[in-house]
Design a binder for these strands. Structure first.
Length: 308
DNA sequence: TAAGATAAGAGGGACAT
DNA sequence: ATGTCAGTCTTATCTTA
C-alpha cells in the first residue's frame, strides 16, 4: 500500500501483525481494523506549496519560516518590537526610542492583545494535548483551532473554561469530518464533564452556524469491529445491513452508534463470528439494552423483508 | 452465563405559554 | 424565559433459557 507521496504504508499492522488495514477516506486515517491502531494519518505535504523547475524559481518560490498554521496561537507571526537600534543596527534618536518603548508597552501589556494571545496559547496547547492523546490527525486539529478562534472572537469563551471550549471545538471538528470519536472519549481525557462538553458543543454549532454532516452509522462499523475483534467480511455485512435499514427508513432518530453496534451484532450472528451483546456494547460505547433494542428493531424490519 | 424484559430517571428538542 | 410533552438512552434489577 502506497500513499500519495509514494511512501510505503505497511499493510501488516506493526502492533498486532493483522493484515486488516483499512483506509477511512473521510478522516484520511489508515487504521488497523483488528486492534484499532492508527497507522497513518492523512497525507500532509509539508513541503513548499509550489513546484520549482529552475534554480531561480527554486530561490523565489521557497518560503521562509514555518508554514502558517492555525494551531499556532499567533499563526506564527507575532511582532516583536525591539528598541534602541534600527533595522541596520544604527542607534536611534532618543525621541524615537521613547516612542518605541511606549509602543512595546502597549503591545505587550495593554488591552486585548495580551489576553487574547494568552488565551489562544493555552487553548492551542490543550488542543495539541488532546489530539495527541486521542490520535486525532492534525488536519482535524487545525479545524478545531479555527473553530476555537471563531468562538473566542464571538466571546463564547468568556465565563467558560478555555480547555472546555477547546475540547468542544475538537469534538466539533471530529464531527465535521465524520471522524469517529465519541463525546465520551473526548471527555475521558479532560476534567470537563461530558454533559457540559455536549452543551458547549451545541453552543458552538448554534452560534457559529456550523453545518454538521448527518451522522452516518456505517462509518462507525470499522471502529467498533476493531475494538471487538470482528473480521472484515462481517463488517461488510454490517454495513450492508445498515444500508438496507436506511433505505427502509428504520434509522431516523436513533443513535448511529447504537445502530452500527446492533448491525454488527447481527452480522456476527449471521457469520458465526460469535460476540456477546456485552462485547459489542462495550466496544461501541452504548449499553447492552440499546444494542438489544436496535437489534430487535432491525430484525423486525429486515427479517421478514427477506434478507436471506 | 448470555440474553430478554421492565421500570425509573436524565437530558435535550419541539412547541406552546 | 419557562413549562410540558414525546421520545431516546442509561442504569438497575429481575427473569428466562
Amino acid at each position: 500500500m502506497v500513499n500519495t507521496r509514494g511512501e510505503l504504508v505497511p499493510y501488516i499492522c506493526p502492533e498486532c501483525r493483522s493484515k486488516n488495514i483499512i483506509h477511512d477516506d473521510e478522516s484520511g486515517e489508515t487504521i488497523c481494523s483488528n486492534c484499532g491502531l492508527v497507522i497513518a494519518e492523512p497525507n500532509l505535504d509539508t513541503g513548499p506549496e509550489r513546484r520549482a523547475f529552475t534554480q531561480t524559481e527554486r530561490e523565489t518560490r521557497t518560503r521562509v519560516g514555518m508554514p502558517l498554521s492555525f494551531s499556532l496561537y499567533d499563526k506564527g507571526l507575532s511582532t516583536v518590537i525591539r528598541i534602541g537600534r534600527d533595522a541596520y543596527g544604527r542607534e536611534l534618536p532618543l525621541k524615537t526610542r521613547k516612542q518605541m518603548l511606549r509602543l512595546r508597552r502597549w503591545q505587550n501589556s495593554c488591552g486585548v492583545h495580551a489576553s487574547v494571545d494568552k488565551n489562544l496559547a493555552q487553548a492551542m496547547a490543550e488542543l495539541e494535548r488532546l489530539s495527541e492523546r486521542l490520535h486525532i490527525p492534525s488536519p482535524i486539529q487545525e479545524t478545531a483551532a479555527v473553530i476555537y478562534r471563531k468562538a473566542l472572537k464571538k466571546g463564547l469563551v468568556r465565563g467558560r473554561s478555555i480547555s472546555a471550549i477547546a475540547a468542544a471545538s475538537l469534538y466539533a471538528a471530529c464531527r465535521l469530518t465524520q471522524a469517529p470519536r465519541t463525546l465520551r472519549e473526548l471527555a475521558s481525557h479532560t476534567p470537563i464533564d461530558k454533559k457540559d462538553l455536549a452543551k458547549y458543543y451545541r453552543l458552538l454549532v448554534r452560534v457559529l452556524d456550523l453545518r454538521m454532516p448527518v451522522a452516518n452509522s456505517q462509518l462507525r462499523v470499522p471502529k467498533i469491529a476493531a475494538l471487538a475483534g470482528v473480521g472484515e467480511e462481517t463488517q461488510r455485512m454490517a454495513v450492508e445491513i445498515l444500508r438496507e435499514a436506511e433505505r427502509l427508513k428504520a434509522t431516523s432518530g436513533r443513535n448511529p452508534m447504537g445502530l452500527a453496534a446492533a448491525a454488527l451484532y447481527i452480522a456476527c450472528l449471521e457469520n458465526g463470528e460469535n460476540r456477546t451483546q456485552k462485547v459489542i456494547a462495550d466496544a461501541s460505547g452504548v449499553t447492552e439494552v440499546t444494542v438489544r433494542n436496535r437489534y430487535k428493531e432491525l430484525k423486525e424490519i429486515l427479517g421478514n423483508g427477506g434478507m436471506r
